[in-house]
Amino acid sequence: MQELSAGGKTEAADVPARNEISVVTGAFGFTGKSIAQRLLSRGESVRTLTAHPERFDPFGGTVEVSPFNFADRSTLVRSLRGASTLYNTYWIRFPYRQVTYEEALANTRVLLGAAEEAGLRRIVHLSITNPSEESPHAYFRGKAILEREIRASSLSHAILRPTVIFGTEDILINNIGWFLRRFPLFLVPGSGDYGLQPVFVEDVAELVVEAGDREDNTTIDAVGPETYTFEALVRLIGEKLGSRAKIIHAAPRLALALSDVVGRIVRDVILTRDELEGLMANLLVSKGEPTGRTSFSSWLEANSATVGRRYASELARRYRAAK
């Protein structure tokens, strides 16, 4: 892997020029942007499929942009044709208005079929740790269904299973910091002893790109080197940010209700029941060895001045028109 500084920058490295075309879904988003940047840095041509082609282009026009066009398969096939690898980050964090998990599943099936028809060599798909088709949690259940369908496709494939991804533009870690900076109390749902194993976005991107180079069908947990209980993670963030907020335990139902109240104020969905139950069931911890090497503690130390300074809105990123 390339060297990463504590601040999260990719150090310069000599990489051979490549003439391949790669497609990254959501290349203007958090994880997709890091994947696209790594591909560009080694000389690949990059296309993106996005729900928001009108939004700010961080690549200055070097990435070819097309809308998803799930309803028009022939157009979707044309946007994929000529590419060798599809890096798929498409999914939804929670249902919103007419956008449901069922629709996200159907859309991904269309995308997978279009990739086969367009003659792509490989798909690298971002899933989640511990998915299961028997899961009571729709997010994890949907991810497991997609994994099965990808394995049944004609494409060579790699499935990457990240936990909580952190980095400069993440939502979860940033918003924990935002709460700790602005409120006198921080409510930890339940015991707080459930775990999570955060992974740095650049480590995920490098694992994803490396997986794209492989020929074998593989499934890899993309997880960082440190595991925390949720309470320990919150306390570490509070300490590094100099927060004076008192951290107290509350019933999960109360924590969800209060997050809903604040969500109405900031016009966002802060936390869902499905997300909280998945976290409390220890589904964001891997049973395998760490595959990322950037520690959350060192990254937080280097970025404590900026974490939580501004609220990061999921709805603004995904569903509201860019200003």
Score class of each variant (00 low, 15 high):
S5Q: 09
A6S: 12
K9F: 15
T10V: 15
A17P: 09
N19Y: 04
N19T: 14
I21K: 03
V23D: 01
T25D: 01
A27L: 04
F28Q: 05
F30H: 06
G32D: 01
I35C: 01
Q37T: 04
R38M: 06
R38Q: 08
L40G: 10
S41H: 04
G43S: 03
G43H: 06
S45D: 04
H52Y: 10
E54C: 04
R55K: 13
F56N: 06
F59N: 06
G60E: 13
G61K: 12
V63A: 02
E64V: 10
F68M: 13
N69M: 09
F70I: 10
S79M: 09
G82V: 09
L86F: 04
Y87R: 00
Y87D: 00
T89N: 05
T89P: 03
Y90N: 01
I92G: 03
F94Q: 06
Q98E: 14
R109F: 15
L111K: 09
E116I: 11
E117S: 11
A118L: 08
L120Y: 06
R121T: 08
I128R: 01
T129E: 05
N130M: 06
Y139N: 03
R141I: 14
G142Y: 10
E147V: 15
R148G: 13
I150S: 03
A152H: 13
S153H: 12
L155M: 09
A158K: 01
P162R: 07
V164D: 00
I165P: 01
G167V: 02
G167E: 05
G167C: 02
I171D: 03
I176E: 07
F183K: 04
L187P: 04
V188D: 03
P189R: 03
Y194F: 14
E202V: 11
E202I: 11
L207M: 05
E210W: 10
A211W: 00
D213S: 14
R214F: 06
D216C: 09
N217R: 14
D221V: 14
V223Q: 03
V223I: 15
E226M: 13
T227I: 13
Y228I: 14
F230T: 01
A232C: 10
L233K: 04
V234Q: 02
L236G: 10
L241W: 10
R244L: 09
H249E: 08
H249V: 09
H249A: 06
P252M: 08
L254W: 14
L254N: 01
A255E: 09
A257I: 11
V261E: 02
V261H: 00
G263M: 11
R264I: 05
L276D: 03
L283V: 06
L284K: 01
S286E: 11
W299P: 02
E301I: 12
N303A: 09
V307Q: 02
Y319R: 05
A322C: 05
K323R: 13
